[in-house]
Simulated assay, not measured.
Amino acid sequence: MPNARENPHEYPRRILIAVTGLSPQIVTETLYALAVSPTASAFIPTEIHLISTRSGAEKARLALLSEEPGWFHRLSRDYALPPIHFSADTIHVLEDVNGKPLEDIRSPEDNRRAADGITGIIREFTADPDCALHVSIAGGRKTMGFFLGYALSLYGRPQDKLSHVLVSEPFEASLSFYYPTPASHVLEMPGGRLVDSAQARITLAELPFVSLRHGLPEALLTGRASYNETVEAARHALAPAELQIDLAARRIRAAGKTFPLPPAEFALLSVFARRALRGEAPLPAPAKESPDADWKNRYLVELRSIARPLGDLDGTAHALRNGMDGGYFSTHLSKLNKILRRELGPAAGPYLISDGGRRPRRYSLGLRPSAIRYDIPETAVRG
C-alpha cells in the first residue's frame, strides 16, 4: 500500500497556497481543477491561503469572499464542496520595510521584502508534518510566482506539489470568468462576443521541482532566516566541500559557514586535515587501555600550534604523559563531530571524521587535498 506521505489527498490538513495580483480568478480556477475531479485522489483543500499586495488582497476579498459576486462561495455551492477555511484572515498581505502593506513590487527593497515574506509563509506551513501543500504560481507578478516556487523548492516535502493552471480559449482573456459552471452561464467577451462558461476547460499543469530541504541546517528550517540566507545555505550544501582552517583565530570555514572550535577538537581536526593534505593513509584509533605515544605526539604538535595565545599546556601534556588512549580520542572525536553536525546540519557529512564503516576501524577526513586550506603557510607547523 502506498505510503500516506506520497498521497497529498490523505493528509488531514491540505492547504492551497497561491500568489494573486489583480486576477483573483486563479484561485477558483485552481480550486476547480483540484477538487472537481472524477478521481478518488482529488485534492480538496481544507484551507486556502493567498499571498498578495494590498490592492491584490482587496480585490481577492471582494471578488471571492463577498456576498455578491462571492465567486468562491458560488463554486463551493455549485459543486457541493466540503467546508474550506478561506477568509480575510487567510489572505496574507506582504509588508514593506516599515511594516506597512506593500502596494506593489517596484524596487529592489520591495523585491527583498516579498521574497522574505513568501519564504517565511512556506517555511511555517512545511514545518507541520500533518499538512500537504498545493502551491499555485499562476497569479501575481512574475517575481512573486518565482519566489513562491523557489520557496517550495527550498522547503518542500514529498507530499507538497507545485502547479500552474491553464484555461481554454477564449475564457483565458475574460475578466468575468472564474470557473466552468455546472449549468449554462453566458459571459460577454471583449468585442461583444458571447460565450458559455459551462463549455470552458481547465487543466492543471503540475510542475516537478527539486527539493533542497535536506541540504538546509536545522536552524534554517525552524528559524526566521531570510530568503537570501536560505538560498545561500542551500547553495553551499550543494557545492563541493571546502575546508578553510584559521589557526591563529582557532576557527574553521566549512560549507560557507565560519565558526570556532574548542582547542582540543580543533587540534584533532587539524591532525586529520594535514594527513588528508599529504595524501596519507587513514589512522587506527589508540587502543582503549593502551596509551599511544605516536598519537600523543601528533596531537600535541597541532595543539601547540593554536595554544600559544592560551598559555600553559602543562595540564594536557601531563594528562597525555604516557600517550593518548582510546577513551581520550573517542571523547574528543565524538565532540568534534557533534559540533560539526550542529553547525552545518545535513552539509556536515564531508567534514566529519569517518571510521571507514568497516573493521578494523581506520579514521580519516575524506576531503580531497585541494579542498583543504590553512590560513598560515604549511611550513609554519611541522607535523
Rank of each mutant, 00 (worst) to 15 (best):
L154T: 02
L154H: 02
Y155L: 10
G156V: 05
G156H: 05
R157F: 05
R157L: 10
D160A: 02
K161Y: 01
K161W: 00
K161T: 10
L162H: 03
L162Y: 00
L166Y: 04
S168K: 01
E169F: 05
P170L: 11
F171S: 01
A173F: 12
A173E: 13
S174I: 11
L175H: 08
L175E: 09
L175A: 15
S176W: 01
F177Y: 09
Y178N: 08
Y178W: 04
P180Q: 11
P182S: 06
A183T: 14
S184G: 06
S184H: 09
H185C: 12
V186E: 12
E188S: 11
M189E: 13
P190Q: 12
P190S: 13
P190E: 13
P190N: 06
G191I: 13
R193N: 06
L194T: 12
L194C: 07
V195K: 05
A198R: 15
R201M: 13
R201G: 09
R201H: 13
L204P: 08
L204Q: 02
A205T: 10
E206I: 08
L207K: 00
F209L: 09
F209T: 06
V210R: 12
V210F: 14
S211W: 12
L212T: 10
L212V: 08
L212F: 15
L212E: 07
G215N: 05
G215I: 13
L216N: 05
P217V: 10
L220T: 02
L221G: 03
L221S: 04
L221E: 07
L221Q: 10
T222E: 11
G223N: 06
S226D: 03
Y227K: 00
N228M: 07
E229F: 07
T230E: 05
E232H: 07
E232Q: 14
E232G: 01
E232Y: 04
E232F: 04
A233E: 05
A233K: 03
R235D: 00
H236P: 00
H236Q: 07
A237W: 05
L238F: 06
P240E: 01
A241I: 03
L243T: 05
L243F: 03
L243H: 03
L243Q: 01
Q244Y: 04
I245F: 00
D246T: 01
D246V: 03
L247R: 15
L247F: 04
A249I: 01
I252E: 06
R253Y: 01
A254H: 11
A255L: 09
A255K: 06
A255E: 10
G256N: 06
F259D: 10
F259T: 08
F259A: 12
P260T: 15
P260D: 11
P263L: 03
P263Q: 03
A264V: 14
E265D: 09
E265H: 10
F266Y: 15
A267D: 12
L268M: 14
S270N: 14
S270T: 14
V271I: 13
F272E: 13
R274V: 07
R274L: 10
R275A: 14
A276D: 05
A276C: 07
G279Y: 03
E280L: 15
A281F: 04
P282R: 11
P284V: 11
P284N: 11
A285D: 11
A285R: 14
P286D: 07
A287L: 14
A287T: 08
K288D: 13
K288M: 15
E289Q: 14
P291C: 10
P291A: 03
D292K: 09
